[in-house]
């Protein structure tokens, strides 16, 4: 009997936790909470400094590299056609490797296997540039994450991490981004945390950074130990966030305060 009650209590607690999900009609990109000037920066490629990264990525795209002395363009051709929609469906489960991979990991896997080059370091300028260039080709397309039986465990793990209280501050992602979005934390508006525009040009960083850099920022803000770049936990969380933002439009390269 006791076990049944505990079970029912747990179900109730779970139902309560997930009942707080933002209804699809109320979802807002962080873009909508930005000031007029910051929105203008994003709207105009000639005012958006992330354009430098995109152009650099375009150069890398057709540059021969690695032992194979091969450029991305030799296999993939014109990125405007071949990379269209790719960022909108990442992270994605890779059947061959049997794991979930985000866009940065996908680019590095290609580098190692096809170009026989060294993988680019996470958050290095070159990897950010290539990622920004590839993701730019999906701008305006709806995010399309469709979990399958193989990726479902990652989605569940990401959701669990999102709802778990962490750090000395003892807050979960959901407590700010589901339950208090639109309010202010110190002087800053709390967004709903939809990763629609990564890699982003963040004014606070004075440069371009990845979604994992942003997630790690939030974790250190909670005085939690941040997971390492490329760790399964962060990829799972990215996957959950992208699934949560499914149907919203890709804005890469977005500008955020």
């Amino acid at each position: 009997m006791r076990r049944i009650i505990t079970g029912a209590g747990l179900l109730l607690a779970l139902a309560h936790a997930f009942a707080q999900d933002i209804p699809p009609g109320d979802r807002r990109s962080g873009y909508e909470q930005m000031g007029r000037e910051t929105r203008a920066m994003q709207d105009d490629d000639s005012a958006n400094p992330a354009t430098f990264w995109v152009l650099e990525g375009e150069t890398s795209w057709s540059k021969k590299t690695g032992t194979a002395n091969r450029a991305c363009s030799e296999c993939h051709g014109d990125a405007a056609a071949s990379m269209k929609g790719v960022a909108a469906r990442h992270p994605a489960f890779d059947a061959k490797r049997g794991r979930l991979m985000n866009l940065e990991q996908r680019i590095n896997a290609c580098r190692v296997e096809r170009q026989e080059a060294k993988p680019l370091a996470y958050e290095s300028r070159e990897l950010l540039a290539l990622t920004a260039y590839v993701a730019r080709q999906s701008r305006g397309m709806p995010i399309k994450i469709a979990p399958n039986p193989q990726s479902q465990p990652s989605l569940d793990a990401g959701r669990a991490l999102y709802n778990r209280k962490i750090g000395q501050i003892d807050l979960s992602c959901a407590q700010c981004h589901d339950q208090n979005w639109g309010r202010h934390l110190a002087g800053n508006a709390i967004p709903q945390a939809h990763p629609t525009g990564y890699p982003i040009y963040r004014l606070e960083w004075q440069g371009v950074g990845s979604l994992q850099r942003r997630l790690r920022n939030c974790m250190s803000g909670l005085r939690a130990e941040a997971y390492d770049y490329g760790s399964q936990e962060l990829v799972d969380l990215e996957y959950y966030l992208m699934w949560r933002a499914r149907g919203m439009k890709v804005e890469t390269p977005a500008v955020r305060p």
Partner: peptide, 9 residues
């Protein structure tokens, strides 16, 4: 006329 220059400042 709009200009943007890449620099760390």
């Amino acid at each position: 006329i709009k200009t943007l220059v890449a620099h760390n400042m």
